[in-house]
Design a protein around this nucleic acid. Sequence first.
DNA 1: ATATTTCTAGAACTAAAATTCTAATTGACG
DNA 2: CGTCAATTAGAATTTTAGTTCTAGAAATAT
Lengths: 200, 200
Amino acid sequence: MARSANFTKDDFIKCAGRLIAEGGPDAATTSAILQGVGAPVGSFYHRFASRDSLMGELWLGLAEDYQREFFELLRIGDVVSAALFTPRWVRGHPLEARILLMYRREDFASAKWPPEMSKRAETLGAELAAGLQELAEKIDGGSPADALVRVRFALLDVPMAAIRRYLVKNEPIPSLVDDLVRECCAALISPGEEPVSGSR
Amino acid sequence: MARSANFTKDDFIKCAGRLIAEGGPDAATTSAILQGVGAPVGSFYHRFASRDSLMGELWLGLAEDYQREFFELLRIGDVVSAALFTPRWVRGHPLEARILLMYRREDFASAKWPPEMSKRAETLGAELAAGLQELAEKIDGGSPADALVRVRFALLDVPMAAIRRYLVKNEPIPSLVDDLVRECCAALISPGEEPVSGSR
DNA sequence: ATATTTCTAGAACTAAAATTCTAATTGACG
DNA sequence: CGTCAATTAGAATTTTAGTTCTAGAAATAT
């Protein structure tokens, strides 16, 4: 029904991802992306409303992948292995990790994502909060509010902190990181029923 | 010997700091700073070689303050109270903390600080590494390399992770944070001699 | 073959930020 | 009081990134 395309949306998204993994979000300028793909501007704006729009799709895609996998583990219920998810994910997705985990969401949006994307991001955040909440109710960690803080810290903040340095230096995550995460997790979450036997 | 100044370097640095605390490094554009201070461009470039130069002075000043205080604690030697330093510093310096701890150094330098400043930053990093190294030798945490990772994680990474959320939301740091840091620290660093008695 | 629609092309436009440059002030000092 | 250096002043330039716009090319259905 019409001319066939030389490029796909994904060509642009992939290229932007590569540029970001190498040099951060600022390195993914429209012209750098264009040059990387070998496409003219027109072909870019034919597919994306704006650069922010591309950045949004890229970030949301990765964040949704990451969170979906994390939730699968959460369902199973083992707290420690949920805490170990992040280092494992980073090992399995080194490029994606450098994009998703080294920067803040704001670095991907000059404050103006299309509203549809802001909604998606909001949903993601709400789901995560709900999942953690549910888990928090199962442990005893002082008040319910405190238990939530505790769970979020043990399952997300500490693992992130443990991997960040390696992400920044672009080095593989040593297995010592898992030990550190495990030890913190055990200390932070009072043992429901399972002792601290290693999973990975 | 000459005309008296209407502004000081510090006027510009303070104003930039305020802007960054409110809206991040990108909010501290030269024109925003100029407007905040009420000065014309000429007066700015009379004092600073470039915007990067101003950002460098601002960042280095804060980093040096932070690190100096941290080292005073390190000398004393109590590991747990060193780990609790960061939340304490954030409580005492909320504005400075938002500038120093919410962003990466690169956010303050578009890749090009004057070499003198890069040197200062390098020195800071080396001093920190040396201090941690010294401490690492006193604890038993596997190989010497592992002990260093462990100490850095317990004294810096974990406390940072514990406060970041509150920094971002611009909320006061709850005392629960100290508990979490303390618990992790105790779990990570094998007790030299002191048990886990609370200090703050 | 031609009409229709999608896609390619890239020159031109816009906007924002950093920086330069030249001229004018101003205050202390001889 | 006139000179000199530090400082103020701000218009103008440069740079860089994002975006718009108009024209043309290509695939497919009729």
